[in-house]
């Protein structure tokens, strides 16, 4: 049974696209059939992060409008054959997305993949609502600062009220992915701590991704960080997150690049 995951945040620039690519690649590395779908019509970036920007012919909007078949628009990753990308259109806007068209595409993707990862645009408008509408699981990407936390809170409210699952009276599974986390700055009080964020958002923690130069470096070469630098701290954090997403119990740590510095442990779990 395929799982549809939306990677969302409300706020822009917190790491949705980076996280979609890193989680998608790590899932594919573990043998799952994965497709990453870019819902950011008009501001597409997932193709760049995946290093597929020079192979885009057809896109999500072409498929929705019936100008291309889904198989024509899907781009196979060069490094992992079980990882595919469905790019967004850069020349259109979010109004080109129709509820019916998105429903049809997601239903079709469910048949061919184990995981469908939807990279949501920022904001709380049409694009973001359609990206989350069919999701079974939501990964809420949050930075440890107040504006990102409040925007995530808003998105969690919408996940619980506007999605297909919510309309059926069911629960959507929600996970917090805390990105750009700097333990030293959090300890100094320059940043919200993990506990602060969990207390406000009150959803289970999927992973803590440490702030790292490796993430920017991977983006610039067009490769998910989990493929580009698999032993780096952020790559290990994303891999742990993927194991938790697949149902494994993995101790919560913040991986570090510094030798000898053992990551801090978090025994806490929030319902």
């Amino acid at each position: 049974m395929a799982k549809v995951v939306v990677v969302t945040s409300g706020k822009g620039g917190v790491g949705k696209t980076t996280s979609t690519a890193a989680l998608g690649a790590a899932l594919a590395q573990s043998g799952e059939r994965v497709v990453v779908v870019d819902f950011d019509v008009g501001l597409r970036n997932l193709d760049l992060i995946m290093g597929a920007e020079r192979r885009v012919v057809f896109d999500l909007i072409n498929v929705i409008q019936g100008d291309a078949k889904l198989t024509q628009a899907l781009i196979r990753d060069k490094r992992l054959e079980n990882l595919m990308l469905l790019p967004a259109s850069q020349t259109r806007d979010k109004d080109a997305l129709t509820g019916e068209g998105v429903a049809r595409v997601i239903a079709e993707l469910r048949e061919s993949f184990d995981w469908v990862l939807c990279d949501s645009p920022a904001g709380i408008e049409r694009g973001a609502l359609l990206a989350m509408h069919h999701a079974d699981i939501a990964v809420v990407v949050t930075n440890p600062e107040v504006s990102s936390v409040r925007d995530s809170d808003r998105i969690i409210g919408m996940l619980d009220s506007t999605t297909e699952r919510a309309e059926r009276g069911e629960r959507i599974e929600k996970h917090l992915l805390l990105t750009r986390y700097d333990p030293a700055r959090a300890q100094r009080g320059d940043m919200l701590s993990v506990e602060d964020v969990l207390e406000i958002l009150s959803i289970p923690l999927l992973g803590i991704i440490p702030e790292s130069q490796e993430v920017l470096r991977a983006s610039n070469v067009g490769s998910p960080v989990t493929l580009n630098a698999p032993v780096s701290a952020p790559a290990r954090a994303y891999s742990d997150a993927v194991r938790r997403l697949r149902g494994e119990i993995v101790e919560m740590t913040i991986p570090s690049d510094k030798i000898g510095l053992v990551a801090r442990l978090f025994g806490r779990r929030v319902a």
């Binding site: 709380i124 925007d151 809170d153 808003r154 969690i156 409210g157 919408m158 619980d160 009220s161 009150s202």
Partner: peptide, 8 residues
């Protein structure tokens, strides 16, 4: 019974 989230 559910929390009231930002914007609600």
């Amino acid at each position: 019974d559910d929390p009231i989230r930002s914007g609600q």
